[in-house]
Every structure is written in C-alpha cells, then in structure tokens.
Design a binder for these strands. Structure first.
Lengths: 225, 225
DNA sequence: TTATAAAGATAGTAATGCTATCATTCTAAA
DNA sequence: TTTAGAATGATAGCATTACTATCTTTATAA
C-alpha cells in the first residue's frame, strides 16, 4: 500500500502552489537541502535555481521571496507535526501519556515520513530548530499574522494547551507552557549541539536528556496544587 | 555625582573600539535606534552612516559587518544585565528572593541606565527580545563561539544556574533552566505583543503576568522533591 | 486544434555588502 | 613648533542580491 500525504497550505504563502507541479516540489525539496547546508542567510533563489536546474525567475513564480518560503516550510512542518501528534496519540486517553509523547516528538530526532516523498522531515526538523524563529522575528510579523501565516504553529500550541488543561484544569498558563515546551525542545537541542556550555547535557549529547528536562519542567508545573 | 559605566568588551567583536571615539559611540547609539525602528534585516551600514552623518566606509572601520555589530550589542546587553543583577541582588541572602529579582529584571521593562549616556537600555532590551537569538542562530555559530563572542550570555546563565542550585542543590538542570528563564522571558514578551493568541496573557498585556508565569514555572520545578 | 498554463531563456535595475585609495583634520610626542 | 600618526571624510568601484519584465518554447486539456 502506498500512501501520499498532502497538507493544505494557506494560499497567501505562495504565488503558485508548489505541491501542484514537479518544479514546485523540487523547489521545496531542494530549498530544504540548501537551507540546511548553508543556513538561511546564505540561501538565495539564484543558488536554489542552479541546484534545481531552473532559473531564478522560475522560483519567483512560486514564492514572493525567500522569507515567504521559510514561513511556508515552517508552517508545513507545524501542520505535519500536528498530524503526527494526532497519529501518535490516537486511542490514548491519559493526557499525561499524551503530553509525554508530544515531548518525545518535539525533542527527539524525527524520522523521514515516506508519505511525503519530496520532503525530508528529519532535515526540515533541523531547519525549524535553527531557523524557525526567524519566520516570525521580523518587522512585518503583525501583517503576516493577519494573513494567518502562523496558524499552524498556533493550532499546535492550542492542541498542546488543551492537553495540559486535561492534565490539570486549574493550570493558569496552558498556552504559554505549550509554546515553552516547543521552543525549549528546539533551543536545548541547538544549544546542546553548538553552545553546550549553556546546557546540563554535557558531552554525551543525548536527546533523551532534553526529554527528561522538559518532562520534569512540565509535570512539576502542572502537577503542583 | 556623575558616574560613567564602561563595559569591557571582547576585542574580537570590533575592528576599532567604538567606546574610544565619538564616532564609535554614535555608531552604537544610532544602530540601536535604527535596528529597533526598522528591524535587523532592513538595517544597513549605508543607512546607519546617513543617519550619523558619516560614510559607509567609516562604519566598516569599526565593525566587520552588521552581524558582528548585532553580537556586540547583545553581548553588551548581557554584560550590563549581569552587572545590573549584581547590583539588585547586593546584600540579599535568600536565593529565592534573588531568583525572583532576576525574573523581574528579565521580564519587566528596563529603565534607561544614565551611567551609559549613549546607550538606551530600554530600547536595547527590545532589540535583544526581537533580534537577540539571531546573534547565534547562524551557520558560523561554532567559529563565533570559539572566539568567545557569546561569553556574556553564558556568564549570565552560569550565574543564574548557581542561584538555582543555591535554592535546591539537587536540581538536575540548573543551566538549562537558566536559559529557559531568559529565553522565555523574551519570547513571552514578544508573543504577548505580536502573537497574543500564543499566550495566556490576553489583551491586558501586562508584563507582570509573564513574571507570574515564569515564577510558577521555575519555583515549581526547583521546589519539587 | 487551439488556447492557455507552465517553464525556459535572457536582460536589466536598484540596493546591498563590501574593499580600496587618497586627501584632510586632529592630536600628542619630539 | 614641527611633525608623525591616527581618525575621519570623500569618492570610486565591484560582485552579489533581490528582484521585475519580456519573449519564446513546451506541455496539456478542452
């Protein structure tokens, strides 16, 4: 059985839907490779075009600029992760178990989802860790937000917040705690790799330590009277 | 009594020490204004030079590029904050009280420190909130780290980590919790302003709510058996 | 078969991110 | 007081970036 997974994206994110054409899919596939390899600052549509074997103008027919493409990639990732969370928590009743599984999904290395042939989720995860916050840390965040560009991130936070409330309906900061889990899963991962003096995970660099830290943080907060 | 505060900066951060000359101080002063006004992406040395009334080449004599200048500004901020923390916690013995004061310093609006006439700490604080993570979220983070460019941030984290251990010497993740406090103080502030659906602080947008959230998070974690 | 959408090919332009050079001014030591 | 050195000013230039425009060719579907 072969399945294809397609995520419906906000149309304001692109000029022409990249999922609809071969070139579009290549743009997504190769932009993930290139951003991961050289970082977002060094990434240009020119280089992307050369890698794909098309022209700069060709890329501009799909995305207004490289920042929009970054928002697209991160938005896609959050949507995919919400779907992934739903699958992993299917038939689970205990909210504590659900929350633990979410922390695992956020903090551990992601496996490539074969249902999305042109997207390597593992690499995309690393991009979201290192570049994700740049999607909204801009001067035009409010306009972008009005266009709903960050909805997938918000939806995921809302879902996690709801599970936090299932654990303890009295807890006062479910949404803030949800985004703390997400951001810190990524920051601890980044710090562990590149600025290890900032963490307590020393040299073994085991992602499971991040899971322990986050679990301790989250459950001591919400279990508290 | 008039006092001047001067922070000794890592010499790798600049080509010519901006604190030593009038032009240098203007570069710092106006770059803070401009980055805050237009955001770091739109900020260029050309525009900065025009604002100051000097030339682009003049700025390049002080800083290799705008990214180095951003690291300089954030490094300066973390050094100043460590000093500020030391002042505020002077003569305090109770580590819980110290930690609470640190959370206040991180999460509440900063007041301009008159001992640094060309630097507006309040605006710089806002820059660190919105642009600070871009200082280390780059492809050359490891080289920059080898040059000790992030030492002030690490030092502050270490200091906070030590106070956490004073509260509870058994707590396993003092450094990770320290950077969580710092990053989350800033992220919650940014989200509250620009992506309020992500937080639980709704429309009143009161920074004291961030303090409550962080205090709850931190103290429930470290008080736990 | 014929529109029409997508892609390819090419050109061009303003802004960005630098580097280089030479002249001028200012300061501090001889 | 002269003079050397440092800092600044003024100007030029160049490769790359970030686009926009136009025209042709190639698929595709009605």
């Amino acid at each position: 059985m072969e399945l294809e997974l397609k995520i419906k994206m906000n149309e304001k994110l692109f000029l022409r839907d990249p999922e609809q054409t071969e070139l579009g899919k290549k743009i997504i596939q190769y932009s993930i490779q290139l951003i991961h390899k050289n970082g977002f600052e060094a990434f240009t549509f020119k280089k992307l075009a050369e890698n794909i074997g098309t022209t700069e103008a060709g890329i501009y027919r799909y995305f207004e600029n490289k920042h929009r493409l970054l928002i697209y990639l991160t938005a896609w990732y959050w949507s995919w992760l919400e779907y992934s969370v739903a699958i992993h928590n299917n038939n689970i009743d205990d909210p504590t178990v659900k929350l633990k599984r979410i922390i695992n999904l956020l903090a551990l290395t992601v496996e490539d989802d074969l249902k999305t042939s042109h997207i390597n989720e593992n690499i995309l995860h690393q991009i979201v860790i290192a570049e994700g916050s740049k999607a909204y840390l801009t001067n035009h965040v409010s306009e972008d937000n009005k266009d709903q560009l960050f909805k997938p991130y918000k939806d995921l936070c809302a879902k996690i917040g709801d599970i936090i409330l299932e654990c303890n309906s009295q807890y006062k900061y479910p949404k803030s705690l949800a985004n703390t889990i997400i951001e810190m899963a990524h920051f601890q991962n980044y710090f562990m790799k590149y600025l290890p003096a900032l963490t307590d995970f020393g040299n073994n660099k085991d992602e499971l330590e991040i899971v322990s830290f986050l679990s301790d943080l989250v459950f001591s907060s919400i279990k508290q009277k």
